[in-house]
Amino acid sequence: MRRILIADDHAIVRRGLKEIILEAFPSAEITEVADAEDLINKVVKEVWDIVLSDLSMPGRSGLEALQQIKIHAPKLPVLILSVYPEDQYAIRVLKAGASGYLNKDMAPEELVNAIHKVLSGRKYITPSIAEKLATNIDLNTQGPAHARLSDREFEVLKLLAAGKSISDIASSLFLSSTTVSTYRARILAKMNLKTNADLTQYSLENNLI
């Protein structure tokens, strides 16, 4: 019997995933959580065969949760699900230890195939991700300017570029306004930009928003 943990803050998404999984794995024991904190706690306290986690959840992001999971259970396969295109986050999550990255508009068969693959100890990597990995071996020295940002800085970049205020970002990420302002300063410095308008223009040109 497989023990599967699903993490997503939308109940309807969890229900859909559960139905798809149970059709392919009728004897699976599936547990649901709605945020990253509960996800991390479940991984620390219990043994699982695989985790399916949303990338964007209240509080800590799925990417931060992934990093914590890999500390406590380095061999536990984690599939990251997201509404964001592959070119925005796929390489980041794979480098952080994920076993695969799937867009939420995937076909059910694709999800089942991904689960089978990672349960067998392999990575689930689409051809487009494989190509990006081959041409961007070191994101710290190659690729676009936003590739130099940390995961949290990248999150803040996208929110700033979308027109969110410092206080709005602080509230949504459970950070202080001072911390968000510090992230903003780092982002501008690393990307050699000066204003939020510059960030928005850059993000539009690079399909980040």
Rank of each mutant, 00 (worst) to 15 (best):
Leu22Met: 11
Leu39His: 06
Glu19Gly: 06
Asn103Ser: 09
Ile40Gly: 07
Lys42Asp: 11
Lys123Gly: 01
Ile40Glu: 07
Glu46Asn: 14
Ile91Asp: 04
Pro26Ala: 01
Leu22Lys: 15
Ile80Asn: 00
Leu55Asn: 11
Asn41Pro: 00
Leu52Pro: 03
Leu17Pro: 09
Ser99Ile: 07
Gly16Asn: 12
Lys75Met: 12
Glu64Phe: 03
Glu29Cys: 11
Glu29Tyr: 14
Arg60Ile: 12
Arg15His: 10
Leu133Ile: 09
Ile50Ala: 08
Ile40Pro: 06
Arg122Pro: 00
Ser82Tyr: 05
Gly62Glu: 04
Leu79Pro: 00
Ile30Gln: 07
Glu86Pro: 03
Ala107Lys: 14
Ile12Thr: 14
Gly121Pro: 01
Ile21Ser: 03
Val118Lys: 03
Val47Ile: 12
Asp9Ile: 01
Asn113His: 15
Ser82Leu: 05
Asp9Val: 01
Lys95Thr: 10
Val33Arg: 04
Asp38Leu: 09
Gln68Asp: 15
Glu29Phe: 14
Ala107Thr: 11
Ile21Val: 15
Lys95Trp: 03
His72Asn: 10
Pro85Ser: 01
Val78Trp: 07
Glu109Gln: 15
Lys18Glu: 14
Lys45Gly: 02
Val78Asp: 00
Ser120His: 10
Ile71Glu: 07
Asp8Ser: 05
Val51Lys: 02
Asn103Asp: 01
Ala114His: 01
Arg14Glu: 01
Ala134Val: 04
Leu111Asn: 05
Asp9Gln: 05
Asp35Asn: 15
Leu22Thr: 10
Val43Trp: 06
Gly100Arg: 11
Ala11Asn: 11
Ile50Leu: 15
Ala114Ser: 02
Ala130Cys: 05
Ala34Phe: 05
Ile80Asp: 00
Met57Asp: 04
Leu52Met: 10
Trp48Arg: 05
Trp48Thr: 03
Glu109Tyr: 08
Arg15Leu: 10
Ala96His: 08
Glu64Met: 12
Glu110Lys: 15
Pro77Val: 05
Gly97Val: 06
Arg60Val: 06
Leu94His: 07
Asp54Gly: 08
Ser27Met: 11
Leu102Asp: 02
Gly121Cys: 04
Ala65Met: 02
Val47Met: 06
Ser61Asn: 06
Ile30Thr: 08
Ile12Trp: 03
His72Leu: 00
Ile125Arg: 06
Pro58Trp: 00
Gly97Asn: 04
Val47Lys: 14
Ile69Lys: 03
Glu46His: 13
His72Val: 02
Lys117Ile: 12
His116Ser: 08
Glu32Lys: 02
Thr31Cys: 12
Ile21Phe: 04
Thr31Asp: 11
Ser27Asn: 15
Pro127Asp: 03
Ile125His: 06
Ser56Asn: 13
Val43Phe: 11
Ile69Gly: 06
Arg122Gln: 14
Lys123Ala: 10
Leu102Trp: 06
Gly59Ala: 11
Met106His: 13
Leu79Thr: 05
Ala98Gly: 11
Ala34Pro: 00
His116Glu: 12
Ala65Cys: 02
Ile40Lys: 11
Asp105Val: 12
Ser82Gly: 07
Leu22Tyr: 01
Arg60Ala: 13
Thr126Leu: 15
Val44Tyr: 04
Lys42Thr: 00
Lys75Asp: 14
Ala98Ser: 14
His10Thr: 13
Ala11Arg: 11
Asp54Ala: 06
Asp8Ala: 03
Ser61Met: 05
Gly100Lys: 10
Thr126Lys: 15
Met57Ala: 03
Arg60Ser: 14
Thr126Met: 10
Gly100Gln: 08
